[in-house]
């Protein structure tokens, strides 16, 4: 089992459930979830995480704001961001904020696991 602490953030409960399930099946034992950016930020302040996997489009606090706030608070963990083709995302800004990988929805389990492994090894998935 892999012990890396991973935080998964999505406002869609079904999607959140699948992502956690995929990571657990990928032998990541320490996976937790948050329903939006605000909740994730609070959890990051309370506990330490080695990787954050987050949706971009969320109420209260979106994925980009979450990353910005984390960096401002000094958190340097890698991050994987998944977006839909309809989301207007400034990829350069995300890269500047230290996003390791972008996943375009819909994606398969293996794509997620490879991205997670790369991020945890310190290699940015799809990074330039």
């Amino acid at each position: 089992m892999k012990t890396a602490a991973i935080l998964v953030v999505d406002d869609e409960p079904s999607m959140l459930e699948i992502l956690v399930e995929w990571l657990v099946r990928g032998e990541y034992a320490n996976v937790r979830s948050a329903g939006d950016g605000q909740e994730a930020l609070e959890m990051c302040c309370a506990d330490s995480y080695e990787l954050v996997i987050s949706d971009v489009n969320m109420p209260r606090m979106d994925g980009i704001t979450l990353l910005r706030n984390l960096r401002e608070l000094g958190h340097r963990m890698p991050a994987i961001v998944f977006v839909s083709g309809l989301d207007s995302v400034n990829r350069k800004e995300l890269l500047d904020l230290g996003a390791s990988a972008f996943l375009l929805k819909p994606f398969r389990r293996q794509e997620l696991l490879v991205a997670v492994e790369d991020a945890l090894r310190g290699r940015g998935y799809g990074a330039e």
Binding site: E12, M15, S84, K105, P106
Partner: peptide, 8 residues
């Protein structure tokens, strides 16, 4: 989102 869930 439903598409992503169905796909997943």
């Amino acid at each position: 989102n439903p598409l992503a869930i169905i796909h997943a």
